[in-house]
Design a protein around this nucleic acid. Structure first.
Lengths: 338, 338
DNA sequence: GTGAAAGCGCTAACAC
DNA sequence: GTGTTAGCGCTTTCAC
């Protein structure tokens, strides 16, 4: 087990240099030599040892994707987009999940520091802007889906502020005036969505009510908690916009427990357009993030940074979002509108 | 950027051997030397190049998990179990998804052949038994969740036959006699579940009706197709057992479209216990696979195969399943029982 | 068109 | 307790 390039050379009666040339399809090798090498490779069932190759070339052609959690299909769709672009360009993609933990994230990042991978794409990070900037000076890193304020690092995101503005607007256009918001404290995307929500209310002349704003985290339970809080108000909202689909689903399940019919008694809207949105009863209105485009764009720029000699591109790119209305949203009824 | 062990040695005024000793916490290095080395490491922001180390040691301490699709949270839960055990033992886990495609799977397997990883765990594979046996002779591979008949390869699964027997039994005990089955053609697990279903019917003295058996694939749509077929029968079933939760959810959604109330007009049961089961309305009855135990056990045995000098363990291990009843199942009503 | 040889960064055997 | 050195498997100059 484990033939080396030397074994192949011996078998073929040629030098390792020639074998290497065949392996790398480089010029200047006769047809006859190539044939003998290939025969030897087949005979010995030889597969080049990439540790040797990568050490020598100082390149692994592997990109690591770090995600907060691997249990959300949303992230997996991004990865699929990344893979689709990277694979044909000769880059392998590997994934790891940090559980949104700084400690684990750092351990994953070691693969970058110890040269196991050529670059890292982070779908959310615990690093602060200063650290990211320092890292970006030395390594090929990129942020996707979730930016960091002040980080001068290759970033690909949707315009979260505008997306939330549009989502809120869609609810207003359905006739809602009492629109609540379920956010997640720390994430930049959530903060910007909060801003978009507020701006939309202002734009449509609807007062902002602090009792309609809940801020927790992306944890599932928070949707239910938020809804209970909203519904205990004297004047409860007729619609709830959440910063993630999972939170929206939590709201929907809690509404069901409270005997509220979602899409009738109350409208609920999420964010991301995970596949569950279509599977739920009622199906869930949401803001779609174009996962494939996000993934493709970020990895395309990252690969350019890795392979090209030019200055590293640390720009911020934005891709289009899309509001999708399904069964979980409808005009407010007279009853709850009064 | 990129200090090497040589740089550290020079900076510390010691030899590379001593630096290496400190790095690997090996004995026989004075406190003073260790201190100087650590100071130099900190000063130079040195991180060992694993390509060099791995090449030298012929070990990467990385295990690859290949899954059919990364969009099912079920697989991710297995990976979490794998990770939980492997990480503290010094093994990194990386993931790749094959889209159930032989071509992609082979490309992923190259990471094994080219020594990028020390072993591979396959959560489903396109390889046949003969190929797997040949691979297992040379490399450290393992199957998890989904075995292959005749493959003499380290395998960790639940007893799919018994699990389906129990699931069917649970429906019988609720009072159902007209129990349909939604299977997936090719997968070994599905075949065995089909056997368990049939054996249970026999055991409880219920005749097997071919019109109650649908065989498609794990693709979501098949649940809906199956249900439409079942409900178009003169004597439709009162319960449907599916070989995956996703198929069950598809059945549930289709039932809803047909104005059937799941958990009342018809009972539906899935397989796996993905997190969606609890989020659905109604919540979905299912057979739980102990993901963490599956993952932990398979990686534990695989790591033993990698690290221990002894004969490779190519045994087959079985872990316990558990039937979980939720809202999607109930006794048949008089109406549909007549 | 082909081969000899240096060297990528590291560990470990051996010498002291 | 520390240093010297060979060599892991590969690519790539440089010579011919």
């Amino acid at each position: 087990m484990g033939a080396t390039i030397k074994d192949v050379a011996r078998e073929a009666g040629l030098s390792v240099a020639t074998v290497s040339r065949v392996l790398n399809a480089s010029a200047n090798v006769s047809d006859e030599a190539a044939e003998r090498v290939n025969a030897a490779i087949a005979k010995l069932d030889y597969s080049p040892n990439y540790l040797g190759r990568n050490l020598r070339c100082r390149r692994t052609n592997v990109i690591l994707v770090i995600m907060p959690t691997s249990e959300h299909s949303f992230y997996m769709k991004i990865v699929a987009g990344i893979q689709k672009y990277a694979q044909p360009r000769g880059f392998d993609i590997i994934c790891a999940s940090s559980n949104s933990t700084s400690e684990i994230e750092i351990r994953q990042m070691n693969m970058l520091f110890n040269r196991t991978v050529d670059g890292v794409i982070m779908l959310g990070t615990q690093y602060d802007a200063a650290t990211l900037n320092a890292l970006a000076a030395e390594y090929n890193i990129a942020l996707c889906c979730e930016g960091v304020n002040g980080a001068n690092v290759l970033t690909v995101v949707i315009d979260d502020e505008a997306a939330a503005f549009d989502a809120t607007g869609a609810l207003v256009k359905l006739g809602h005036k009492k629109i609540a918001f379920v956010g997640a404290n720390d994430a930049v995307s959530s903060v910007q969505r909060t801003n978009g929500y507020k701006r939309a209310l202002g734009y449509y002349g609807i007062p902002i009510r602090s009792e309609y704003m809940y801020s927790g985290s992306f944890e599932y339970e928070h949707g239910a908690v938020a809804l209970r809080k909203f519904m205990s108000l004297d004047d409860p909202p007729t619609a709830v916009l959440c910063v993630s689909d999972l939170l929206a689903i939590s709201v929907i399940n809690e509404a069901h427990k409270m005997d509220l019919t979602v899409g009738k008694d109350i409208s609920v809207m999420g964010f991301d357009n995970i596949s569950m949105c279509e599977m739920m009863i009622p199906s869930v209105s949401t803001v779609e993030q174009p996962c494939e485009r996000l993934g493709e764009l970020v990895v395309r720029r990252l690969i350019a940074n890795i392979t090209e000699e030019t200055e590293r591109d640390n720009a911020k790119y934005t891709v289009e979002h899309k509001v999708i209305l399904r069964e979980s949203t409808s005009p407010p009824t007279d009853k709850n509108e009064q």
